[in-house]
């Protein structure tokens, strides 16, 4: 399994809107905490160490597109 960087989410607008709505009314700290919990549960769903490492590298420097 490699990191998927092509579109893979059905109903992207619906997903995005639900994600933003989850933060409605939260303080910045509470929002950051919610994001952390969300990342952890999604990481568990992925369940592949190499993919998780590639994902972390990819977002550290998004301008390069480097996932290796």
């Amino acid at each position: 399994m490699t990191l998927i960087t092509d579109p893979n989410i059905p109903d992207p607008d619906g997903f995005y809107s639900e994600l933003i709505a989850a933060h409605d009314g939260l303080s910045d700290d509470d929002s950051a905490a919610l994001n952390a919990r969300l990342i952890l549960i999604l990481a568990n769903q992925i369940g592949n160490r190499a993919v998780l490492s590639a994902a972390i590298r990819a977002v550290q420097c998004p301008a390069t597109g480097d996932t290796k």
Partner: peptide
């Protein structure tokens, strides 16, 4: 809501999508 984010977190997510979209096709539909 995407063009004019209503909260700080919405703005952060919006710009994260834009930051990723240049190199990663997955972010473009967002």
């Amino acid at each position: 809501d995407f063009i004019t984010p209503k909260s700080r977190m919405s703005h952060i997510f919006r710009n994260a999508v834009l930051d990723l979209a240049e190199q990663f096709a997955f972010a473009r539909p967002l």
